[in-house]
């Protein structure tokens, strides 16, 4: 980890207007939770759609996508990446520093509103579960999306395809696809700790932990290798 890279990354990320995109989603989640609690519907009726389908399946991955595709992607887009590349730094150090910032920002932006929603729903245990689940899943998502920002020129598009097609569509048809869905990992961990009818998990906690960890390793190793042979293109004139 490199404190200078982390500080610069955090300033670049939080200093942009893009970060405001992260605000409406948590507000929506809290609003929906309040409606759910006051509507008189039972916990297992409103809980999974709001906390699961909105909170863990949309807000969490979208936040991770916006953040993780920016920490390195913006520098690649505007060419300032050369300043970082022409330093005698191990490429792993650059990737890990970027990932740490993305992880911290994503966790803060998702775990806090999810925990608040769980508290509003009246479950302290689920609030803890949400914090742990969101934090853990943030790391897996950020590793994947950070690697994507190096592997493709359109990380946001590819990331959206994963979130929408794989996690939200394919998982409904093909049961095995669940195992490779970070959203399911987050749900399993949060539900495992919370133990409430507000969430319903479909994979075991052990599977969630193992597969998420694999995603993190694959993401970090892939991103490090890609950065190690990163070639400047598009300005060969």
């Amino acid at each position: 980890m490199n404190p200078t890279i982390m500080r610069l990354t955090a300033r670049a990320l939080l200093g942009r207007r893009r970060v405001l995109l992260l605000l409406p989603m948590p507000l929506l989640l809290i609003g929906m939770t309040v409606i759910g609690v006051t509507s008189g519907a039972s916990d297992d009726e409103w809980g999974p759609p709001v906390l699961g389908n909105l909170g863990l399946s949309v807000i969490l991955p979208l936040t991770a996508l916006v953040v993780a595709s920016s920490v390195l992607g913006l520098e690649i887009d505007d060419g300032t990446i050369t300043h970082l590349l022409t330093k005698p730094l191990p490429r792993r150090e650059i990737i890990l520093s970027k990932l740490a910032v993305a992880w911290a920002v994503t966790s803060a932006a998702t775990a806090v509103p999810l925990a608040l929603a769980a508290l509003i729903a009246g479950s302290g245990a689920l609030a803890v579960g949400m914090v742990v689940g969101a934090t853990f899943a943030s790391l897996a998502y950020c590793s994947l999306f950070l690697a994507l920002s190096l592997l493709t020129k359109r990380p946001v598009a590819v990331g959206l395809v994963y979130i929408m097609l794989w996690e939200n569509l394919l998982v409904g048809f093909v049961a095995g696809a669940r195992v490779f869905s970070v959203r399911q990992h987050a749900t399993a961990i949060a539900d495992g700790i919370g133990g409430t009818p507000l969430l319903s998990a479909s994979v075991s906690v052990a599977t969630a932990l193992i597969v998420s960890a694999v995603f993190v390793v694959v993401g970090v190793v892939g991103a490090t290798r890609r950065l190690g042979s990163f070639a400047l293109t598009g300005e060969a004139s």
Binding site: L8, R11, A12, G15, D78, G79, T80, T82, H83, T86, E235
Partner: peptide
């Protein structure tokens, strides 16, 4: 080695 690229890319917020 030091490199000054042609592209005018500097982080303007610093």
């Amino acid at each position: 080695l030091g490199l000054v690229t042609e592209r005018e890319s500097v982080p303007g917020f610093l």
